[in-house]
Amino acid sequence: MYPTEIIKTIIVDDQTIIQKDVETLVQTQPGFIVIGTCGTVKDAQKLIELSKPNLVLLDINLEDGTAFDLLVMVPPEKYGYKVIFLTAHQEHAIKAIKLGALDYLLKPLDAEELQTALQKVSKEPPAREDQLRLVNQYRNGAIPSRIALRSQQFLQVVEIGIIKYCQSDSGYTTFYLSDGRKIVTSYYIKEYEEILPESQFLRTHQSFLVNTVHIDRYYREDGYILLKDGTKIIVSDRRKEFVTKFLTTRL
């Protein structure tokens, strides 16, 4: 048997009391050691450059800047570390993180959630540059034109325009793309409804989110939408009114 690989972890949070708390939680996980804690972008940059961690638990708001500033200075792909964001409540930042399909945990931390997140860490590659670019563009107020989708096997950045529709099935969401590909992700459809441009994506049904660019016709009486490629998308009875309004006023 090979010895399990040790995951060297750094914790970055501007409150020392939280640093310590997260440290104790991580230390109890087999295979994880905390090799450093700090509270500023400046210190975190030095620490990463010197100690080459495998994982950084990263609070978004730091004393002298934000977590995203840090990731630009020491790109995770280049330094080979993975990131899990920590945040109390920052809706916009969380949406940005979701758009880039990055990992995050909410404060106050739940010990079990942290454990699940840590167990997944070793299987995943470090955040790529294109993922981070998506996050930063969104944070700067740009309407996203691409989105990162993470399936069990791979991570794919796709143009939002080629998404035909999303279909949910018990916690999983399947993306149907206009080039015929399908991508299954493990987020709820509601989360995508929040981050995809609301002027372009239409929730027609509990299980369907449709890209209006691909809509050909709407059969109101029969309760479905016909896409340009001939796919039929169900419109639920209680959304008919909304769909009519959406299609007549926003397009």
């Binding site: 409150q15 009391i17 939280i18 310590k20 708390d21 104790t24 939680l25 109390a88 409540h89 920052q90 909410l106 404060k107 106050p108 931390l109």
Partner: peptide, 18 residues
Amino acid sequence: EPHYIFNTIAVAQAIVRS
């Protein structure tokens, strides 16, 4: 501000865990 509230609860949690 929700951020302040949740953050404060996180600190409270940390103190309890300590």
